[in-house]
Amino acid sequence: MLHSKLCRVMSLVYYHSVFFALMGTTLRIRSYRKSIRLEKASRSYLIYNFCVGIFLFWNIYYMVPQALVDGYIKYNIVLQWNFFVMIILRILAVLGCYVTIWLKRKEIIQLYKNSLAYWKIFRKIIQVLVNKEDLEELQITLARMMYRQIIVLYVGFMFSSTIQYRLLSVINKQSLLALSARLTHFLHFIAVKIGFYGMLLLLNHQFLVIQLALNNLHQKKSGKKWKTLRSIASMHLETLQLARRIFSLYDIINTTVFINMFMSTINILYHAVQFSNNTIKSDRWDILFGNGLIVSNIWGTLMLMNMLDRVVTSCNNIGQTLRQFSDLPNVSKKLQRELEVFTIQLNRNHLVYKICGIVKLDKPAGLRYIASILSNVIILMQFDLRKQPQPNIHHRYQA
Score class of each variant (00 low, 15 high):
Lys113Met: 07
Ile77Met: 10
Phe55Leu: 12
Ser375Tyr: 11
Tyr62Ser: 12
Ser42Gln: 02
Gly96Cys: 05
Leu212Asp: 05
Lys113Gln: 15
Arg368His: 15
Asn114Phe: 02
Leu212Met: 10
His205Trp: 10
Arg368Leu: 15
Leu328Tyr: 06
Leu249Ile: 13
Ile232His: 04
Leu95Asn: 09
Ile163Phe: 05
Ser11His: 14
Cys315Met: 07
Gln139Trp: 00
Ile73Glu: 07
Gln66Phe: 14
Ile298Gly: 07
Phe383Tyr: 05
Leu103Pro: 01
His3Ala: 11
Ile344Lys: 15
Leu129Ser: 11
Met261Trp: 09
His16Ile: 07
Tyr14His: 11
Met1Ser: 14
Phe342Lys: 06
Tyr61Asp: 07
Thr256Ala: 05
Lys74Ser: 10
Tyr165Thr: 02
Lys334Gln: 11
Asp251Ala: 09
Val130Phe: 05
Asn392Glu: 15
Lys193Val: 06
Leu27Ser: 07
Leu351Ser: 01
Ile91Gln: 04
Val209Tyr: 03
Arg323Trp: 04
Gly290Asp: 01
Ile88Trp: 13
Arg8His: 11
Leu167Gly: 14
Ile150Asn: 12
Arg33Asn: 09
Gln127Phe: 05
Val359Pro: 02
Asn59Gln: 11
Ala143Cys: 05
Asp70His: 09
Pro391Thr: 01
Ile91Glu: 03
Ser234Asn: 15
Trp102Leu: 11
Ile266Met: 05
Asp384Val: 07
Met1Ile: 07
Leu142Ser: 03
Ala233Met: 10
Asp309Gly: 04
Val170Thr: 10
Val359Arg: 13
Ile370Asn: 02
Thr343Val: 02
Arg386Val: 10
Pro329Val: 02
Gln382Cys: 10
Val69Trp: 08
Gly223Arg: 01
Lys221Ile: 00
Leu374Tyr: 13
Leu95Cys: 11
Ile151Leu: 12
Leu111Thr: 09
Leu129Arg: 06
Phe207Arg: 05
Trp119Met: 11
Phe83Lys: 05
Ile125Gly: 13
Phe84Gly: 03
Ile171Trp: 08
Ala178Cys: 08
Val192Ser: 04
Gln66Ala: 14
Thr184Gly: 12
Thr141His: 14
Asn317Gly: 08
Ile370Arg: 08
Leu38Gln: 08
Leu116Asn: 03
Ile194Glu: 02
Thr256Val: 09
Met145His: 12
Arg284Leu: 15
Gly198Glu: 00
Arg230Ala: 12
Thr301His: 00
Ala41Glu: 06
Arg386Thr: 12
Ile73Pro: 02
Asn291Arg: 04
Ile358Thr: 10
Val377Ile: 06
Gln219Phe: 12
Arg90Gln: 13
Lys132Cys: 07
Val18Glu: 13
Leu153Glu: 06
Ser4Gly: 06
Ile232Arg: 04
Tyr62Trp: 15
Asn76Arg: 09
Gln66Thr: 14
Asp283Cys: 03
Asn114Pro: 02
Val377Thr: 04
Phe186Cys: 09
Arg182Cys: 08
Cys356Pro: 04
Val152Gln: 06
Ser326Val: 12
Leu214Asp: 00
Cys7Gln: 15
Ser160Phe: 04
Leu27Ile: 07
Leu302Tyr: 11
Cys51Asp: 09
Asn216Thr: 01
His205Pro: 00
Ser17Met: 15
Ile163Lys: 02
Thr25Asp: 03
His185Ala: 04
Ile378Trp: 09
Phe19Asp: 02
Tyr353Leu: 03
Lys225Phe: 03
Gly292Pro: 01
Val295Trp: 06
Tyr165Phe: 11
Val13Pro: 02
Leu22Asn: 05
Trp285Arg: 07
Asp286Arg: 00
Cys315His: 13
